[in-house]
């Protein structure tokens, strides 16, 4: 998961509800620690702004593997 910071208003709903405690505040916006996130989608369900989105977490690693 990643947070679209243009959509995030920094309410902290996902920060408090994330079961992995993988989300913290950074500059008053939510920020997801990619190494703790398990893609459980709790933040997606929590957010009314549509800020969290599923995006490839390690694109470079995958490009490397595919190559």
């Amino acid at each position: 998961m990643q947070i679209d910071i243009d959509k995030c208003v920094g309410c902290g709903g996902c920060v408090n509800l994330c079961p992995q405690i993988a989300i913290h505040f950074f500059d008053n916006k939510a920020c997801i620690d990619q190494f703790r996130c398990t893609e459980c989608r709790t933040c997606v369900i929590a957010c009314g702004m549509g800020a969290p989105n599923v995006s490839c977490r390690f694109p470079q690693a995958i490009i490397f593997t595919e190559a």
Binding site: V9, G10, C11, G12, G13, V15, F25, N28
Partner: peptide, 12 residues
């Protein structure tokens, strides 16, 4: 507190 800016209200 988890926020850096304690008096700033970000929630509804």
């Amino acid at each position: 507190d988890q926020k850096k800016d304690i008096p700033k209200i970000l929630r509804s």
